Simulated scan of single mutants.
Amino acid sequence: MTVESDDEIREALEYETIAVVGCSSTPGKAAHDVPAYLRDRGYDVIPVNPFADEIFGREAFDSLADIDAEIDVVCIFRPSEEVSQIVDEALERDDVDVVWTQQGIRDDEAARRARDDGRTVVQGRCMKVDHRRLIT
């Protein structure tokens, strides 16, 4: 299902473990500040960035496939043209319930594949903005 309503977004924000693909180690970048905000609000944020060893004092993984822990949400901070491959990696996992692309990022075909596989999809929305608006 593609999430549009506030109630559906609230449900997507109830999950606890978020793998952030494209997580940045650079403060001031959205791909760093949004996951930092989520960590500060109690979410378990798993950084995915093949060019970093550690982000937020936690091991950064090269890909979703390298993560042994359970993942509820895959949050994507990569260009739209990379979304398809990331969604395919997410669909290889049985534990991912939500695929969320950040503001300005979307791939309708990849979103359709995720929905067809029973995953919840949020496209082009900022988790921090929606969390501030609906949860805090």
Score class of each variant (00 low, 15 high):
2 T>G: 13
3 V>R: 06
5 S>M: 08
7 D>V: 08
8 E>K: 13
8 E>W: 10
8 E>H: 09
11 E>R: 07
13 L>D: 04
14 E>V: 01
14 E>G: 07
16 E>K: 13
19 A>T: 06
19 A>Q: 05
19 A>K: 02
22 G>D: 00
24 S>F: 04
25 S>W: 11
26 T>E: 10
33 D>K: 11
37 Y>T: 03
39 R>Y: 03
42 G>H: 13
43 Y>P: 02
44 D>C: 13
45 V>A: 08
47 P>N: 02
47 P>S: 03
51 F>N: 15
54 E>H: 00
55 I>S: 05
57 G>Y: 01
61 F>I: 06
62 D>T: 14
64 L>C: 06
65 A>P: 07
65 A>R: 08
67 I>V: 15
68 D>S: 15
70 E>T: 11
71 I>W: 08
71 I>T: 05
72 D>I: 12
74 V>E: 08
75 C>D: 15
76 I>V: 14
77 F>Y: 14
80 S>Y: 03
80 S>R: 13
83 V>E: 05
86 I>R: 04
89 E>I: 04
90 A>I: 04
91 L>P: 12
94 D>M: 08
96 V>Y: 05
97 D>S: 13
98 V>D: 09
102 Q>W: 06
103 Q>S: 15
104 G>Y: 02
105 I>P: 03
106 R>K: 10
109 E>R: 15
110 A>M: 09
111 A>L: 02
111 A>Q: 03
113 R>E: 13
115 R>F: 00
118 G>F: 09
120 T>K: 10
124 G>S: 14
124 G>Y: 04
125 R>M: 12
131 H>P: 00
132 R>P: 02
133 R>H: 12
135 I>L: 15
135 I>Q: 12
136 T>D: 15
